[in-house]
């Protein structure tokens, strides 16, 4: 592994952040989900957004309503979510900045044309309806495909072939080698040492899972070092809620079937997050 590769926690640093278009600082969308190419060295291929990406993450009635409403208004037989190729991402900070000219989502274009644009004084020109995303195809995985340890995930039929969604990895029950419940996936650790996406940018590789002993949802960033447990009262509360947090490297994971995660090694042999 490259020593200087950037490390991110998918849920903490990437998911649900604002996407900003670099050329004109326009706010485009949120990172509603991430598209992942599975395999031995899975990596993030695209940002997914819009109701078809957010709905499944929300789940329940609101999620269902959101996806079905969107489908109703879309012409295509199997509409996919709005997609921005990871090769366009130039910066991941308090916002995710993207280069190129990804266009606005359909609702914005429709409202500009049919509602807001018709009120005097709107003074905005709707963007040209460019042909759907011109982003180049995802490069083929270069390393380690030979062993074919398939990590199959429930696939959505509208997704691109051979991809999965990162959001589906969160909140899963984790079982140890003998089937006992070990905890719950709380976040996915990404390391930027995957295959080259653009000339100089490497993909974010899924390096492993952060597993919380107790099912309590998000870690809010308090999985990071003790120096960041501030304010101390809040930090202590959140850490107490989650119990111990450990880190499973990708090759310590046996399988990802049935909406669960099966570990290949016992809980005690996982690294503690303090070592990260």
């Amino acid at each position: 592994m490259n020593e200087h590769a950037r490390v991110l926690h998918a849920r903490l640093h990437l998911l649900d952040r604002q996407v900003v278009r670099e050329s004109d600082d326009r706010l485009l969308c949120k990172v509603d989900d991430l598209e992942v190419r599975p395999g031995d060295r899975p990596y993030v291929t695209a940002i997914l957004s819009g109701p078809l990406a957010l709905g499944p993450r929300l789940g329940g009635l609101p999620g269902w309503l959101m996806t079905e409403t969107d489908r109703l208004f879309r012409g295509e037989a199997r509409p996919g979510p709005y997609r921005i190729d990871m090769s366009l991402v130039t910066d991941v900070g308090s916002a995710v900045r993207v280069a190129g000219h990804p266009q606005d989502l359909a609702l914005e274009r429709w409202l500009t044309r049919n509602v807001v644009g018709r009120i005097p004084g709107a003074a905005g020109t709707p963007e040209q309806d460019a042909p759907e995303s011109t982003a180049q195809d995802v490069p083929e995985n270069t390393a380690g495909d030979a062993s074919e340890k398939t990590l199959r995930v429930r696939e959505r039929e509208e997704d691109r072939p051979d991809t999965m969604r990162l959001g589906g990895l969160l909140g899963r029950t984790v079982r140890g080698p003998s089937g006992e419940v070990a905890g719950d996936t709380a976040d996915v650790r990404l390391v930027q040492d995957g295959p080259l996406l653009a000339e100089v940018r490497q993909a974010f590789r899924l390096a492993g899972l952060l597993i919380a002993r107790r099912r309590a949802g998000r870690l809010f960033g308090y999985e990071r070092g003790p120096g960041l447990w501030r304010p101390s009262l809040l930090g202590a509360l959140v850490r107490r809620m989650h119990g111990e947090i450990r880190y499973a490297e990708w090759d310590q994971i046996e399988s990802l079937d049935d909406d669960e995660v099966r570990l290949g090694v016992a809980w005690d042999r996982l690294r503690s997050t303090a070592d990260l």
């Binding site: 604002q18 996407v19 326009r26 706010l27 485009l28 969308c29 949120k30 509603d32 957004s49 957010l54 606005d104 609702l107 914005e108 409202l111 500009t112 509602v115 807001v116 644009g117 009120i119 004084g121 709107a122 003074a123 905005g124 020109t125 709707p126």
Partner: peptide, 23 residues
């Protein structure tokens, strides 16, 4: 609403460039 869904918002752009916000 706009900030939850990631829509362009604000009066620093002309209304026609922040349609969902103004609606």
């Amino acid at each position: 609403l706009s900030q939850y869904f990631g829509w362009q918002w604000g009066k620093y752009v002309v209304p026609g460039r922040a349609a969902r916000f103004h609606v």
